[in-house]
Design a protein around this nucleic acid. Structure first.
Lengths: 237, 237
DNA sequence: TTAACCGCATGACATAGATCAATAAATTCG
DNA sequence: CGAATTTATTGATCTATGTCATGCGGTTAA
Protein backbone atom coordinates (compact mmCIF):
# COMPACT_ATOMS: atom_id res chain seq x y z
CA UNK A 1 0.00 0.00 0.00
CA UNK A 2 2.76 1.95 -0.70
CA UNK A 3 2.77 5.29 0.77
CA UNK A 4 4.26 8.12 -1.10
CA UNK A 5 7.52 9.39 0.18
CA UNK A 6 8.34 12.84 -1.06
CA UNK A 7 11.99 11.92 -1.51
CA UNK A 8 13.05 9.90 -4.51
CA UNK A 9 11.87 11.83 -7.52
CA UNK A 10 8.61 10.35 -8.45
CA UNK A 11 8.63 11.53 -11.90
CA UNK A 12 5.13 11.23 -12.96
CA UNK A 13 3.68 12.65 -9.87
CA UNK A 14 6.18 15.27 -9.04
CA UNK A 15 4.79 16.42 -5.78
CA UNK A 16 2.53 13.70 -4.72
CA UNK A 17 2.43 14.30 -1.04
CA UNK A 18 1.76 11.53 1.42
CA UNK A 19 -1.91 12.00 0.83
CA UNK A 20 -4.30 9.33 1.84
CA UNK A 21 -6.38 7.28 -0.53
CA UNK A 22 -8.09 10.27 -1.98
CA UNK A 23 -5.49 10.52 -4.66
CA UNK A 24 -2.86 12.84 -5.88
CA UNK A 25 -3.86 16.36 -5.25
CA UNK A 26 -1.71 18.55 -7.34
CA UNK A 27 -1.90 22.22 -6.86
CA UNK A 28 -3.71 23.00 -10.06
CA UNK A 29 -7.31 22.08 -10.53
CA UNK A 30 -9.21 21.99 -13.78
CA UNK A 31 -10.39 25.45 -12.90
CA UNK A 32 -6.92 26.61 -13.89
CA UNK A 33 -7.42 25.12 -17.33
CA UNK A 34 -10.67 26.85 -18.11
CA UNK A 35 -13.13 24.43 -16.60
CA UNK A 36 -16.52 25.65 -15.51
CA UNK A 37 -17.60 24.82 -12.00
CA UNK A 38 -21.01 23.36 -11.19
CA UNK A 39 -22.77 22.63 -7.96
CA UNK A 40 -24.93 19.59 -7.37
CA UNK A 41 -27.28 18.64 -4.58
CA UNK A 42 -26.95 15.39 -2.73
CA UNK A 43 -27.83 12.39 -4.89
CA UNK A 44 -28.00 14.29 -8.13
CA UNK A 45 -26.95 12.35 -11.17
CA UNK A 46 -24.12 14.08 -13.03
CA UNK A 47 -24.34 11.73 -16.01
CA UNK A 48 -25.64 8.29 -16.88
CA UNK A 49 -23.75 5.29 -18.09
CA UNK A 50 -24.02 5.32 -21.86
CA UNK A 51 -24.37 9.06 -22.23
CA UNK A 52 -22.02 10.51 -24.83
CA UNK A 53 -18.80 11.49 -23.06
CA UNK A 54 -18.24 15.18 -23.62
CA UNK A 55 -16.62 16.34 -20.41
CA UNK A 56 -14.03 15.40 -17.90
CA UNK A 57 -14.80 16.11 -14.25
CA UNK A 58 -12.83 16.86 -11.12
CA UNK A 59 -14.31 16.81 -7.66
CA UNK A 60 -13.81 20.22 -6.08
CA UNK A 61 -15.75 19.50 -2.91
CA UNK A 62 -18.08 16.82 -1.62
CA UNK A 63 -18.20 13.18 -2.64
CA UNK A 64 -19.23 11.51 -5.88
CA UNK A 65 -19.78 7.82 -6.62
CA UNK A 66 -19.53 5.97 -9.91
CA UNK A 67 -21.66 2.88 -10.33
CA UNK A 68 -22.73 0.33 -12.89
CA UNK A 69 -25.98 -1.61 -13.08
CA UNK A 70 -26.65 -5.05 -14.41
CA UNK A 71 -29.87 -5.39 -16.40
CA UNK A 72 -31.62 -7.14 -13.51
CA UNK A 73 -30.88 -4.24 -11.21
CA UNK A 74 -27.84 -5.48 -9.34
CA UNK A 75 -25.63 -2.49 -8.70
CA UNK A 76 -21.91 -2.14 -8.09
CA UNK A 77 -20.45 1.12 -6.89
CA UNK A 78 -17.03 1.11 -8.53
CA UNK A 79 -15.48 4.30 -7.17
CA UNK A 80 -16.10 6.77 -4.40
CA UNK A 81 -14.39 10.02 -5.30
CA UNK A 82 -13.34 12.93 -3.17
CA UNK A 83 -11.63 16.24 -3.64
CA UNK A 84 -9.02 16.23 -6.36
CA UNK A 85 -10.12 13.00 -7.99
CA UNK A 86 -11.27 12.94 -11.58
CA UNK A 87 -13.90 11.03 -13.48
CA UNK A 88 -15.63 10.91 -16.82
CA UNK A 89 -12.94 9.23 -18.86
CA UNK A 90 -13.54 5.70 -20.10
CA UNK A 91 -11.38 5.46 -23.17
CA UNK A 92 -14.58 5.45 -25.13
CA UNK A 93 -17.06 7.94 -26.49
CA UNK A 94 -19.62 7.03 -23.86
CA UNK A 95 -19.44 7.13 -20.09
CA UNK A 96 -18.95 3.65 -18.70
CA UNK A 97 -20.58 4.35 -15.34
CA UNK A 98 -23.27 6.54 -13.88
CA UNK A 99 -21.92 9.39 -11.74
CA UNK A 100 -24.03 10.44 -8.79
CA UNK A 101 -23.24 12.70 -5.87
CA UNK A 102 -23.28 11.29 -2.36
CA UNK A 103 -23.32 14.73 -0.77
CA UNK A 104 -23.69 18.26 -1.99
CA UNK A 105 -20.76 18.68 -4.30
CA UNK A 106 -18.99 21.14 -6.54
CA UNK A 107 -17.32 19.82 -9.62
CA UNK A 108 -15.00 21.29 -12.22
CA UNK A 109 -16.15 20.33 -15.70
CA UNK A 110 -13.74 20.50 -18.60
CA UNK A 111 -14.77 19.99 -22.23
CA UNK A 112 -12.96 16.94 -23.57
CA UNK A 113 -11.69 18.79 -26.62
CA UNK A 114 -9.78 21.09 -24.28
CA UNK A 115 -8.21 18.07 -22.67
CA UNK A 116 -6.72 16.79 -25.88
CA UNK A 117 -4.87 19.98 -26.52
CA UNK A 118 -3.27 20.54 -23.17
CA UNK A 119 -0.13 18.73 -22.12
CA UNK A 120 -0.58 20.06 -18.62
CA UNK A 121 -4.01 18.55 -18.35
CA UNK A 122 -2.76 15.25 -19.76
CA UNK A 123 -0.05 15.26 -17.16
CA UNK A 124 -2.39 15.88 -14.27
CA UNK A 125 -4.63 13.24 -15.75
CA UNK A 126 -2.00 10.53 -15.87
CA UNK A 127 -1.08 11.36 -12.31
CA UNK A 128 -4.64 11.14 -11.02
CA UNK A 129 -5.54 8.09 -13.03
CA UNK A 130 -2.61 6.06 -11.80
CA UNK A 131 -3.57 6.91 -8.25
CA UNK A 132 -7.15 5.89 -8.80
CA UNK A 133 -5.94 2.73 -10.49
CA UNK A 134 -4.08 1.76 -7.33
CA UNK A 135 -7.27 2.20 -5.37
CA UNK A 136 -9.18 0.08 -7.88
CA UNK A 137 -6.56 -2.65 -7.51
CA UNK A 138 -6.93 -2.60 -3.77
CA UNK A 139 -10.69 -2.68 -4.16
CA UNK A 140 -10.48 -5.71 -6.45
CA UNK A 141 -8.72 -7.55 -3.63
CA UNK A 142 -11.49 -6.54 -1.29
CA UNK A 143 -14.24 -7.67 -3.66
CA UNK A 144 -12.54 -10.84 -4.78
CA UNK A 145 -10.94 -12.12 -1.61
CA UNK A 146 -12.09 -10.49 1.61
CA UNK A 147 -14.75 -11.61 4.08
CA UNK A 148 -17.65 -9.36 5.04
CA UNK A 149 -15.96 -8.26 8.26
CA UNK A 150 -12.72 -7.54 6.43
CA UNK A 151 -14.59 -5.50 3.83
CA UNK A 152 -16.38 -3.33 6.36
CA UNK A 153 -13.23 -2.89 8.44
CA UNK A 154 -11.28 -1.92 5.31
CA UNK A 155 -14.00 0.50 4.31
CA UNK A 156 -13.96 2.22 7.68
CA UNK A 157 -10.17 2.36 7.80
CA UNK A 158 -10.19 3.91 4.37
CA UNK A 159 -11.92 6.89 5.94
CA UNK A 160 -9.26 7.43 8.57
CA UNK A 161 -6.40 9.62 7.35
CA UNK A 162 -2.83 8.40 7.75
CA UNK A 163 -3.77 5.07 9.20
CA UNK A 164 -4.02 1.55 7.93
CA UNK A 165 -1.30 1.49 5.34
CA UNK A 166 2.08 -0.08 5.81
CA UNK A 167 3.40 3.32 6.73
CA UNK A 168 0.72 3.51 9.39
CA UNK A 169 1.76 5.88 12.09
CA UNK A 170 -0.02 3.98 14.83
CA UNK A 171 -2.11 5.64 17.49
CA UNK A 172 -1.08 9.13 18.59
CA UNK A 173 -1.86 8.12 22.10
CA UNK A 174 -1.62 4.47 23.09
CA UNK A 175 -4.63 4.60 25.36
CA UNK A 176 -6.85 6.74 23.26
CA UNK A 177 -6.94 5.39 19.78
CA UNK A 178 -10.25 6.83 18.67
CA UNK A 179 -11.51 8.57 15.58
CA UNK A 180 -14.81 10.14 14.61
CA UNK A 181 -16.15 9.77 11.14
CA UNK A 182 -19.05 10.68 8.92
CA UNK A 183 -20.05 8.15 6.31
CA UNK A 184 -21.92 10.21 3.68
CA UNK A 185 -23.32 6.90 2.43
CA UNK A 186 -26.42 4.89 3.25
CA UNK A 187 -26.14 1.23 4.21
CA UNK A 188 -27.34 0.34 0.72
CA UNK A 189 -24.63 2.42 -0.92
CA UNK A 190 -21.99 0.89 1.33
CA UNK A 191 -23.32 -2.58 0.51
CA UNK A 192 -23.18 -1.83 -3.20
CA UNK A 193 -19.64 -0.55 -2.83
CA UNK A 194 -18.47 -3.56 -0.83
CA UNK A 195 -20.28 -6.19 -2.90
CA UNK A 196 -22.51 -7.22 0.03
CA UNK A 197 -26.18 -6.94 0.93
CA UNK A 198 -27.53 -4.24 3.15
CA UNK A 199 -28.37 -6.85 5.79
CA UNK A 200 -24.82 -8.12 5.93
CA UNK A 201 -23.41 -4.61 6.26
CA UNK A 202 -25.88 -3.90 9.03
CA UNK A 203 -25.02 -7.09 10.87
CA UNK A 204 -21.28 -6.52 10.64
CA UNK A 205 -21.64 -2.97 11.91
CA UNK A 206 -23.77 -4.18 14.82
CA UNK A 207 -21.20 -6.82 15.54
CA UNK A 208 -18.34 -4.32 15.61
CA UNK A 209 -20.42 -2.29 18.03
CA UNK A 210 -21.07 -5.33 20.22
CA UNK A 211 -17.37 -6.07 20.25
CA UNK A 212 -16.63 -2.54 21.42
CA UNK A 213 -14.58 -1.55 18.39
CA UNK A 214 -16.94 1.20 17.28
CA UNK A 215 -19.76 3.30 18.65
CA UNK A 216 -22.67 4.39 16.53
CA UNK A 217 -23.66 7.96 17.18
CA UNK A 218 -26.04 8.22 14.26
CA UNK A 219 -26.39 5.68 11.50
CA UNK A 220 -24.08 7.74 9.30
CA UNK A 221 -21.81 8.91 12.08
CA UNK A 222 -19.53 6.40 13.67
CA UNK A 223 -16.91 6.70 16.32
CA UNK A 224 -14.04 4.27 16.00
CA UNK A 225 -13.05 3.47 19.55
CA UNK A 226 -10.01 1.37 18.71
CA UNK A 227 -8.58 2.15 15.32
CA UNK A 228 -5.77 -0.35 15.71
CA UNK A 229 -8.16 -3.19 16.51
CA UNK A 230 -10.26 -2.28 13.52
CA UNK A 231 -7.16 -2.20 11.38
CA UNK A 232 -6.30 -5.72 12.49
CA UNK A 233 -9.61 -6.83 11.04
CA UNK A 234 -8.98 -5.63 7.51
CA UNK A 235 -7.21 -8.81 6.40
CA UNK A 236 -4.11 -6.81 5.63
CA UNK A 237 -2.18 -7.69 8.81
CA UNK B 1 -30.96 -8.30 -3.26
CA UNK B 2 -32.71 -4.98 -3.27
CA UNK B 3 -32.59 -4.35 -6.95
CA UNK B 4 -33.06 -0.96 -8.42
CA UNK B 5 -35.92 -0.73 -10.82
CA UNK B 6 -35.66 1.67 -13.70
CA UNK B 7 -38.63 3.59 -12.41
CA UNK B 8 -36.60 4.44 -9.34
CA UNK B 9 -35.40 7.23 -11.49
CA UNK B 10 -32.28 5.40 -12.39
CA UNK B 11 -32.26 4.88 -16.08
CA UNK B 12 -30.95 1.53 -17.01
CA UNK B 13 -27.74 2.15 -18.75
CA UNK B 14 -27.72 2.47 -22.43
CA UNK B 15 -25.36 0.17 -24.11
CA UNK B 16 -21.76 0.88 -24.51
CA UNK B 17 -20.58 0.36 -28.02
CA UNK B 18 -18.46 -2.61 -28.93
CA UNK B 19 -15.11 -1.34 -27.82
CA UNK B 20 -12.96 -4.31 -27.11
CA UNK B 21 -11.35 -4.84 -23.75
CA UNK B 22 -7.82 -4.78 -25.00
CA UNK B 23 -7.46 -1.05 -24.68
CA UNK B 24 -6.65 1.81 -26.93
CA UNK B 25 -3.83 0.82 -29.12
CA UNK B 26 -2.33 3.97 -30.39
CA UNK B 27 0.17 3.72 -33.14
CA UNK B 28 3.24 4.57 -31.10
CA UNK B 29 4.69 2.20 -28.59
CA UNK B 30 7.16 3.06 -25.87
CA UNK B 31 9.84 1.82 -28.20
CA UNK B 32 9.35 5.08 -30.08
CA UNK B 33 10.16 6.99 -26.92
CA UNK B 34 13.44 5.32 -26.18
CA UNK B 35 12.27 2.34 -24.15
CA UNK B 36 14.38 -0.77 -24.05
CA UNK B 37 12.71 -4.05 -24.88
CA UNK B 38 13.03 -7.16 -22.71
CA UNK B 39 11.93 -10.71 -23.17
CA UNK B 40 10.57 -12.88 -20.38
CA UNK B 41 9.81 -16.57 -20.15
CA UNK B 42 6.42 -17.83 -19.07
CA UNK B 43 5.75 -17.17 -15.39
CA UNK B 44 8.73 -14.91 -14.87
CA UNK B 45 8.21 -12.17 -12.33
CA UNK B 46 8.84 -8.74 -13.84
CA UNK B 47 8.68 -6.98 -10.48
CA UNK B 48 7.28 -7.56 -7.03
CA UNK B 49 4.72 -5.55 -5.15
CA UNK B 50 6.64 -3.15 -2.95
CA UNK B 51 9.69 -2.90 -5.21
CA UNK B 52 10.76 0.69 -5.86
CA UNK B 53 8.98 1.85 -9.00
CA UNK B 54 11.57 2.90 -11.52
CA UNK B 55 10.06 1.92 -14.84
CA UNK B 56 6.88 1.98 -16.77
CA UNK B 57 6.06 -1.05 -18.92
CA UNK B 58 4.13 -1.75 -22.07
CA UNK B 59 3.24 -5.23 -23.26
CA UNK B 60 4.69 -5.73 -26.72
CA UNK B 61 3.69 -9.37 -27.05
CA UNK B 62 2.37 -12.13 -24.82
CA UNK B 63 0.30 -11.76 -21.68
CA UNK B 64 1.13 -10.35 -18.27
CA UNK B 65 -0.85 -10.45 -15.05
CA UNK B 66 -0.77 -8.13 -12.07
CA UNK B 67 -1.71 -9.56 -8.71
CA UNK B 68 -1.77 -8.72 -5.04
CA UNK B 69 -1.39 -11.05 -2.09
CA UNK B 70 -2.89 -10.84 1.37
CA UNK B 71 -0.55 -11.80 4.21
CA UNK B 72 -2.26 -15.17 4.64
CA UNK B 73 -1.66 -16.06 1.00
CA UNK B 74 -4.99 -15.22 -0.59
CA UNK B 75 -4.26 -13.88 -4.04
CA UNK B 76 -6.21 -11.59 -6.33
CA UNK B 77 -5.20 -11.19 -9.95
CA UNK B 78 -6.20 -7.59 -10.64
CA UNK B 79 -5.34 -7.20 -14.31
CA UNK B 80 -4.56 -9.42 -17.24
CA UNK B 81 -2.69 -7.36 -19.80
CA UNK B 82 -2.16 -7.88 -23.48
CA UNK B 83 -0.44 -6.11 -26.32
CA UNK B 84 -0.51 -2.35 -26.05
CA UNK B 85 -1.50 -2.23 -22.40
CA UNK B 86 0.72 -0.56 -19.82
CA UNK B 87 1.61 -1.26 -16.24
CA UNK B 88 3.97 -0.20 -13.50
CA UNK B 89 2.29 3.03 -12.44
CA UNK B 90 0.66 3.21 -9.05
CA UNK B 91 0.84 6.88 -8.22
CA UNK B 92 3.43 5.90 -5.67
CA UNK B 93 7.13 5.22 -5.47
CA UNK B 94 6.54 1.52 -5.09
CA UNK B 95 4.77 -0.94 -7.32
CA UNK B 96 1.36 -1.77 -5.90
CA UNK B 97 1.15 -5.23 -7.48
CA UNK B 98 3.41 -8.03 -8.54
CA UNK B 99 3.76 -8.35 -12.32
CA UNK B 100 4.22 -11.86 -13.69
CA UNK B 101 4.08 -13.17 -17.23
CA UNK B 102 1.44 -15.72 -18.15
CA UNK B 103 3.19 -16.62 -21.39
CA UNK B 104 6.48 -15.80 -22.99
CA UNK B 105 6.35 -12.06 -23.38
CA UNK B 106 8.23 -9.08 -24.67
CA UNK B 107 7.86 -5.83 -22.85
CA UNK B 108 8.94 -2.25 -23.53
CA UNK B 109 10.45 -0.73 -20.42
CA UNK B 110 10.68 3.02 -20.06
CA UNK B 111 12.56 4.77 -17.26
CA UNK B 112 10.08 6.81 -15.27
CA UNK B 113 12.21 9.94 -15.44
CA UNK B 114 11.76 9.83 -19.22
CA UNK B 115 8.03 9.73 -18.74
CA UNK B 116 7.99 12.92 -16.79
CA UNK B 117 9.46 14.95 -19.57
CA UNK B 118 7.45 13.79 -22.50
CA UNK B 119 4.05 15.20 -23.28
CA UNK B 120 3.58 12.54 -25.92
CA UNK B 121 4.15 9.78 -23.42
CA UNK B 122 1.80 11.44 -20.94
CA UNK B 123 -0.80 11.57 -23.63
CA UNK B 124 -0.50 7.94 -24.56
CA UNK B 125 -0.53 7.17 -20.87
CA UNK B 126 -3.77 8.97 -20.16
CA UNK B 127 -5.38 7.20 -23.07
CA UNK B 128 -4.25 3.73 -22.00
CA UNK B 129 -5.02 4.27 -18.37
CA UNK B 130 -8.56 5.38 -19.00
CA UNK B 131 -9.11 2.29 -21.08
CA UNK B 132 -7.74 0.03 -18.41
CA UNK B 133 -9.83 1.86 -15.87
CA UNK B 134 -12.97 0.95 -17.80
CA UNK B 135 -11.92 -2.68 -17.68
CA UNK B 136 -11.29 -2.45 -13.95
CA UNK B 137 -14.77 -1.00 -13.49
CA UNK B 138 -16.29 -3.87 -15.40
CA UNK B 139 -14.23 -6.30 -13.37
CA UNK B 140 -15.44 -4.75 -10.11
CA UNK B 141 -18.97 -5.56 -11.20
CA UNK B 142 -17.92 -9.11 -11.88
CA UNK B 143 -16.22 -9.50 -8.52
CA UNK B 144 -18.83 -7.70 -6.50
CA UNK B 145 -22.06 -8.82 -8.09
CA UNK B 146 -21.80 -11.80 -10.43
CA UNK B 147 -22.39 -15.50 -9.73
CA UNK B 148 -19.73 -18.11 -10.45
CA UNK B 149 -21.33 -19.07 -13.77
CA UNK B 150 -21.63 -15.42 -14.80
CA UNK B 151 -17.98 -14.84 -13.92
CA UNK B 152 -16.71 -17.75 -15.96
CA UNK B 153 -18.98 -16.91 -18.89
CA UNK B 154 -17.83 -13.27 -18.78
CA UNK B 155 -14.21 -14.38 -18.65
CA UNK B 156 -14.59 -16.60 -21.70
CA UNK B 157 -16.51 -13.94 -23.63
CA UNK B 158 -13.79 -11.48 -22.82
CA UNK B 159 -11.48 -13.64 -24.95
CA UNK B 160 -13.72 -13.51 -28.00
CA UNK B 161 -13.04 -10.48 -30.19
CA UNK B 162 -15.96 -8.29 -31.26
CA UNK B 163 -18.53 -10.17 -29.25
CA UNK B 164 -20.26 -9.63 -25.96
CA UNK B 165 -20.84 -5.91 -25.93
CA UNK B 166 -24.34 -4.77 -26.67
CA UNK B 167 -23.02 -3.58 -29.94
CA UNK B 168 -22.28 -7.26 -30.38
CA UNK B 169 -22.25 -8.17 -34.01
CA UNK B 170 -23.90 -11.51 -33.37
CA UNK B 171 -22.85 -14.73 -35.01
CA UNK B 172 -21.41 -14.50 -38.51
CA UNK B 173 -23.35 -17.59 -39.36
CA UNK B 174 -26.56 -18.31 -37.49
CA UNK B 175 -26.00 -22.03 -37.39
CA UNK B 176 -22.31 -22.05 -36.68
CA UNK B 177 -21.64 -19.79 -33.75
CA UNK B 178 -18.37 -21.31 -32.61
CA UNK B 179 -15.04 -19.96 -31.53
CA UNK B 180 -11.76 -21.56 -30.58
CA UNK B 181 -9.69 -20.14 -27.80
CA UNK B 182 -6.48 -20.62 -25.89
CA UNK B 183 -6.54 -19.69 -22.23
CA UNK B 184 -2.88 -19.05 -21.34
CA UNK B 185 -3.96 -19.38 -17.71
CA UNK B 186 -4.19 -22.30 -15.30
CA UNK B 187 -7.40 -22.98 -13.41
CA UNK B 188 -5.79 -21.47 -10.34
CA UNK B 189 -4.92 -18.25 -12.16
CA UNK B 190 -8.43 -18.03 -13.56
CA UNK B 191 -9.83 -18.62 -10.07
CA UNK B 192 -7.64 -15.88 -8.63
CA UNK B 193 -8.71 -13.52 -11.37
CA UNK B 194 -12.41 -14.26 -10.92
CA UNK B 195 -12.40 -14.28 -7.12
CA UNK B 196 -13.36 -17.97 -6.96
CA UNK B 197 -11.69 -21.20 -5.89
CA UNK B 198 -10.09 -23.56 -8.35
CA UNK B 199 -12.76 -26.16 -7.58
CA UNK B 200 -15.59 -23.80 -8.44
CA UNK B 201 -13.96 -22.80 -11.72
CA UNK B 202 -13.46 -26.45 -12.55
CA UNK B 203 -17.06 -27.32 -11.73
CA UNK B 204 -18.47 -24.44 -13.76
CA UNK B 205 -16.35 -25.36 -16.77
CA UNK B 206 -17.50 -28.99 -16.50
CA UNK B 207 -21.04 -27.80 -16.26
CA UNK B 208 -20.76 -25.65 -19.38
CA UNK B 209 -19.38 -28.70 -21.14
CA UNK B 210 -22.24 -30.88 -19.91
CA UNK B 211 -24.69 -28.28 -21.14
CA UNK B 212 -23.10 -28.36 -24.58
CA UNK B 213 -22.01 -24.72 -24.59
CA UNK B 214 -18.31 -25.48 -24.80
CA UNK B 215 -16.03 -28.34 -25.70
CA UNK B 216 -12.72 -28.89 -23.94
CA UNK B 217 -9.99 -29.83 -26.34
CA UNK B 218 -7.19 -29.50 -23.82
CA UNK B 219 -7.51 -28.01 -20.39
CA UNK B 220 -6.19 -24.70 -21.72
CA UNK B 221 -7.83 -24.90 -25.10
CA UNK B 222 -11.56 -24.51 -25.26
CA UNK B 223 -13.95 -24.46 -28.14
CA UNK B 224 -17.00 -22.32 -27.61
CA UNK B 225 -19.77 -24.13 -29.44
CA UNK B 226 -22.43 -21.49 -28.94
CA UNK B 227 -21.02 -18.05 -28.31
CA UNK B 228 -24.46 -16.46 -28.10
CA UNK B 229 -25.62 -18.90 -25.44
CA UNK B 230 -22.48 -18.26 -23.47
CA UNK B 231 -23.01 -14.55 -23.81
CA UNK B 232 -26.49 -14.92 -22.37
CA UNK B 233 -24.91 -16.36 -19.26
CA UNK B 234 -22.69 -13.37 -18.47
CA UNK B 235 -25.36 -11.53 -16.49
CA UNK B 236 -25.15 -8.64 -18.92
CA UNK B 237 -28.26 -9.53 -20.94
C1' DT C 1 7.87 -49.97 -17.33
C1' DT C 2 7.01 -47.82 -13.13
C1' DA C 3 7.13 -44.07 -10.06
C1' DA C 4 6.57 -39.49 -8.84
C1' DC C 5 4.51 -35.30 -9.88
C1' DC C 6 1.36 -31.87 -11.36
C1' DG C 7 -2.84 -29.79 -12.83
C1' DC C 8 -7.45 -30.85 -12.97
C1' DA C 9 -11.95 -33.03 -11.77
C1' DT C 10 -15.33 -34.61 -8.62
C1' DG C 11 -17.78 -36.01 -4.40
C1' DA C 12 -19.25 -35.13 0.50
C1' DC C 13 -19.87 -31.84 3.62
C1' DA C 14 -19.57 -27.14 6.02
C1' DT C 15 -20.59 -22.36 6.22
C1' DA C 16 -20.61 -17.37 5.12
C1' DG C 17 -23.54 -14.65 3.40
C1' DA C 18 -28.00 -14.20 0.77
C1' DT C 19 -32.87 -14.17 1.07
C1' DC C 20 -37.24 -13.57 3.21
C1' DA C 21 -39.87 -11.51 6.78
C1' DA C 22 -40.95 -8.83 10.60
C1' DT C 23 -39.94 -4.81 13.50
C1' DA C 24 -37.76 -0.60 14.94
C1' DA C 25 -35.69 3.65 14.38
C1' DA C 26 -35.10 7.88 11.75
C1' DT C 27 -36.80 11.33 8.71
C1' DT C 28 -40.26 13.80 6.12
C1' DC C 29 -44.62 15.78 5.66
C1' DG C 30 -49.29 17.49 6.49
C1' DC D 1 -47.26 17.30 16.77
C1' DG D 2 -48.49 12.55 14.82
C1' DA D 3 -48.88 9.98 10.45
C1' DA D 4 -46.48 8.36 6.63
C1' DT D 5 -42.39 7.02 4.62
C1' DT D 6 -37.91 5.69 4.30
C1' DT D 7 -33.88 3.46 6.19
C1' DA D 8 -31.79 0.32 9.33
C1' DT D 9 -31.81 -3.72 12.41
C1' DT D 10 -32.61 -8.36 13.62
C1' DG D 11 -34.11 -13.21 13.24
C1' DA D 12 -35.02 -17.58 10.69
C1' DT D 13 -33.98 -19.93 6.99
C1' DC D 14 -31.70 -21.33 2.47
C1' DT D 15 -28.12 -21.92 -0.85
C1' DA D 16 -24.07 -20.97 -3.58
C1' DT D 17 -19.71 -21.56 -2.99
C1' DG D 18 -15.89 -22.83 -0.07
C1' DT D 19 -13.32 -26.65 2.20
C1' DC D 20 -11.55 -31.13 2.53
C1' DA D 21 -10.38 -35.38 0.54
C1' DT D 22 -9.74 -38.63 -3.10
C1' DG D 23 -8.67 -40.05 -7.72
C1' DC D 24 -7.59 -39.43 -12.61
C1' DG D 25 -4.83 -38.43 -16.78
C1' DG D 26 -0.84 -36.49 -18.63
C1' DT D 27 4.13 -35.68 -18.42
C1' DT D 28 8.82 -36.33 -16.80
C1' DA D 29 12.48 -39.08 -15.09
C1' DA D 30 14.78 -43.20 -14.00
Amino acid sequence: MAYLEPQDGIRLARRVRPVRPSGAKSDETFADFGAKTSTYASHDVIYYEGDPARRLFEVASGTVMLFKLLPDGRRQVVEVLRQGEIFGLAGSDEYDCTAETLTEATVHELELRLVEGSAEVQCKLAKCLSNQMRILHEHAVLLGRKSAVERVASFLMYLVPDRGGLGCIGPDDEDNDGYDLKLHMTRQEIADYLGLTIETVSRVVSDLKRRGVIRIDRSDQIHLKRVCSLCQMTGMH
